[in-house]
Design a protein around this nucleic acid. Structure first.
Lengths: 347, 347
DNA sequence: ATGAAAGCGCTAACAG
DNA sequence: CTGTTAGCGCTTTCAT
């Protein structure tokens, strides 16, 4: 009751006593002020101000009001892609008076489980999640138990949930088609030792583009995988440059799993004295704020990060409506050609 | 009770009925399993699993247990500085089983107020805040009413609150001393039309360094202010380059309010054909992940972002201890010299 | 227009 | 070891 500073929130009962009315009148002043006599209302409002009374959310929730809190469970909030996505969620929710409980899972399934349990215990309004693994069982159960779940970056696949995402296969295809049309025939796909569905689907898009061009992906594509979690991705990518340069014949282009990895690769290549794009072309993914400012400016695939977040929040809020039907919203990525790609040296 | 899908959480009473025991036995199984007879416990646990029972946090809170939720109120979660700070908060809180309710204020006092009210209503465990304005009155009241408040990026100044921060004056001084020692005597301080205390204090540090060198800040320092919120800071900074180049005599160095602004300035200077660092030196602030990867690599002032967050969470968690005493933790920034600074052309 | 009362799901004495 | 009981602070009929 009393916290350790000896302070205690005042309750409605105390306000009521101070104003000389009943608790229900205080409740009315707060929830339907119109039905309270002006003079009574004035007295109650004054008491509220005077005592610094603040409504107790958990108690209201216990009475059946919906929680204003929505959980956002994503891979890493410090990753600018997710940070911006999260801003989209936050802003859309704010319009509905809701707040975001943001949780990073760092690709660790145990963390994901733990956070989901906590969120369900808190009886949040719902959860928006970019799941680590492909198994939706836990999420379906949560949803069945009454906590709405919206998927991000994972296709709906007929699941009984809402989903928002970007067409990753298309994104991979766009990037690959660009390189192929420049004449590249020896291309590294720089992925991770542990990959989310998005990265896997993009690689599939890359292979698709090659097949569509009448080429054999197994000949053209070199799969390299960075250790993801420690060390920081920029450094892992910079270190990965050694592996790229060790390939024979030397690759002429690198498709990176995201812009941060591309940043590391650019740096590593610079240190190694390899010129971009003259010696090697580099393509990023995400189109983060810094991509245009790099030297050379980074060719990359743009994703509507903020809009993804807004859309996810939209769907989540819609779950409260009686006529809600689960659905999927899918955005299209787009290629942004800048200065880090060019035809290979001797085409 | 029932949400719109017609689902309802099962309650302890239902579990108790299903297991043929009383609610308190179920409660015991959950909170002090040791005192329950093994056979009874087994039955109860099975019922819990079978019904998918999940404890109801708000009800527990109503009984006096502390909320596991901590509010984090910062300027902008999509700003990498705050995103990383927030990860520090999140990780430290996770160790204590707590979650972060993250809110961006976008420098709008109205948003800050609104979010603080919501957090207090939710009866969160406490609030970590990088306040927009200098007036601590609302925060002191919240704290007095029983919601602990920890200040970030704002000096404690004897307030009855905990605070964590970085020595901003020192940060400004380090940056300025570096430029002065290179021989620069015409320096732009690129701030904002609306500035937080941190930016103001850094400018003060810059002036201090000049005075300490026996120079007059009013002669050397050119104050330029970027419109902060829209448009995006990178673009605002790129546009600000026009103003820099319009100054006569031409400045030889630019101190930017952060790395993102520096990125924009670098870009704008590049477009204008001005060479960095030969024609103009550029210094950032924060040492974000991309700073080292820029061309030229950015000289900047490092702040321990993640550690700041951890320290803030530490202090907040400590507020629950009976012997807690408010205190301040202050970190030291450090200068990271890279390639974007050099002596002015004709010294 | 106001008040009395029931009860949301849970915890913590206390009794047995 | 298990059950009974009394609320926590609030919303919401239903009387008055």
């Amino acid at each position: 009751m009393a916290n350790d500073a000896g302070v205690r929130r005042s309750s409605m009962r105390e306000v009521a006593r101070a104003a000389g009315v009943s608790v229900s009148t205080v409740a009315n002043v707060l929830s339907r002020p119109a039905i309270v006599a002006p003079e009574t209302r004035r007295r109650v409002e004054q008491a509220i101000r005077h005592m610094g009374y603040v409504r107790h959310g958990p108690a209201r929730q216990l009475r059946g009001l919906p929680s204003p809190i929505v959980g956002s469970v994503i891979l890493d909030l410090a990753n600018p892609f997710f940070a911006e996505l999260n801003r989209g969620i936050e802003d859309r929710l704010a319009e509905a008076g809701c707040l975001v409980l943001a949780c990073s899972t760092d690709l660790q399934p145990a963390k994901e489980r733990q956070v989901l349990d906590l969120l369900e215990e808190q009886a949040v309004r719902g959860v928006i999640i970019a799941p680590i693994g492909p198994d939706p069982a836990v999420l379906l159960e949560m949803s069945r138990r009454g906590t709405p779940v919206v998927l991000v970056d994972r296709p709906r696949d007929g699941l009984d949930l809402c989903a928002v995402g970007v067409d990753d296969v298309l994104g991979g295809r766009l990037a690959a088609e660009h390189l192929l049309s420049l004449g590249h025939r020896r291309i590294v796909y720089l992925g991770g030792t542990f990959e989310t569905g998005t990265v896997i689907r993009r690689r599939e898009g890359v292979r698709q583009a090659m097949r569509a061009a009448g080429l054999d992906p197994d000949d053209l594509l070199i799969d390299l995988r960075l250790p993801i979690h420690p060390p920081p991705l920029v450094e892992a990518a910079a270190a990965g440059v050694q592996q790229i340069l060790a390939e024979r014949p030397l690759p002429t282009a690198v498709l990176c799993l995201n812009d941060t990895a591309a940043l590391g690769v650019l740096h590593g290549l610079g240190v190694a004295g390899v010129k971009v794009p003259q010696d090697i072309s580099v393509v990023g993914y995400d189109n983060l704020a810094f991509a245009a400012g790099l030297a050379p400016a980074l060719t990359t695939v743009n994703q509507p990060k903020y809009q993804l977040g807004r859309a996810a929040a939209d769907l989540l809020l819609d779950e409260a409506r009686p006529d809600h039907a689960h659905r999927e919203i899918r955005f299209r990525p787009s290629l942004v050609i800048r200065a880090s790609t060019a035809p290979p040296r001797r085409a």
